[in-house]
Amino acid sequence: MLLASVLGVLMGMVMGLTGAGGGILGVPALVLGLGLSMTQAAPVSLLAVGAAAAVGAIDGLRHGLVRYRAALLIALLGALFSPLGVFVAHQMPEALLKGLFSALMVLVAWRMLQREKLQAGPSDHGAASWGQKNCMLNQQTGRLAWTAKCTATLATLGAITGAVSGLLGVGGGFLIVPAFKQLTDVQMRGIVATSLMVISLISLIGVVGAFHAGVRIDAVGWVFIAASIVGMLVGRRLCSVIAARTLQVGFASLCVVVAIGMLVNALH
């Protein structure tokens, strides 16, 4: 129980410090630290990530940063495809799942090490012109312009996020945040808040799908989940005193180390 508490707090702190992508550490903590299988770890990690993300999403809603229509569309498609991911995960060999997860962590590390472009301005309006992005904000209303292209783009993002979430037990923030940056002109604080809402919804759906497949969470799992929420709150407090680039490099390095650990574990 003590180890589950410590690992949960650490995962929550990393998630709070780095944003949505920190939740990818949940499955390795459960597999390498507590000895769970990938299929056992997935629902525990999803519930921990979802609960922690919900804390950030509620704060984003309070400040009017969440693009809630976009979040609901992505989550709806995620709901349809997440059970598919869970089903596929139960048909795959454990070693292959761990190998896929290791590859995913290396990809996340690479994305994290890419330097962010600074986007000035107090508003959440982007600076792109029409035609540059699949989804654009209306500069008068500040809301997304719901064209057919925009709707199809967000629906596709939701389907992919849901499938990966169900397959590997991750919230999907590492997909949603860079995709939103690439495909929309929403500013970063709006992207993160929207991503957290999507993650909380998709994670809950993924947990329901896992329960339906027969997976159950034991007492150690619940301790890990509760501890991760505490860690998230602590991490959000600390993120203002640590340089963003230091966090990016540290998190990316941790991802590579954990990916190697997962790969070694899979080979054994």
Rank of each mutant, 00 (worst) to 15 (best):
M1Q: 09
M1K: 12
L3I: 14
S5L: 15
V6S: 11
V9W: 00
V9Y: 00
M11Y: 01
M15D: 04
A29W: 06
L30V: 11
L30E: 06
L32S: 09
G33I: 12
L34T: 10
S37E: 12
T39W: 02
Q40F: 01
P43N: 02
S45V: 05
S45T: 05
A48H: 01
G50S: 06
A51P: 00
A54E: 07
V55C: 10
A57E: 04
A57C: 07
L61I: 07
V66T: 12
L72V: 15
I74C: 10
I74Y: 02
G85I: 06
H90Q: 12
A95P: 09
L97H: 08
K98Y: 00
S102V: 04
L104I: 09
V106H: 12
V108D: 05
V108S: 09
A109R: 07
A109H: 04
W110K: 11
M112D: 05
R115L: 10
E116K: 14
E116W: 01
L118S: 10
Q119Y: 07
D124T: 13
H125C: 07
H125A: 15
G126M: 06
W130M: 12
W130C: 08
N138V: 09
Q139C: 03
Q140W: 04
Q140F: 04
T141V: 11
L144G: 11
A145P: 00
T147D: 03
T153C: 14
T156M: 14
L157N: 08
T161N: 10
T161V: 14
V164E: 11
V164R: 05
L167T: 00
L167Y: 01
L168D: 02
G172N: 12
L175T: 05
L175E: 02
L175N: 03
I176C: 04
K181D: 12
V186R: 05
Q187G: 05
G190N: 05
V192L: 13
A193V: 13
A193M: 09
T194W: 09
T194P: 07
S195R: 07
M197T: 06
S200T: 14
I202W: 03
L204K: 03
V208K: 10
G209V: 01
F211K: 08
H212P: 00
A213E: 10
G214R: 02
R216H: 10
I217R: 00
V220R: 08
G221V: 07
G221S: 02
V223K: 02
S228W: 06
I229A: 13
V230Y: 02
R236N: 13
R237L: 14
L238G: 02
V241I: 12
L247K: 08
L247N: 02
C255Q: 05
V258G: 01
I260N: 03
G261Y: 07
L267F: 12
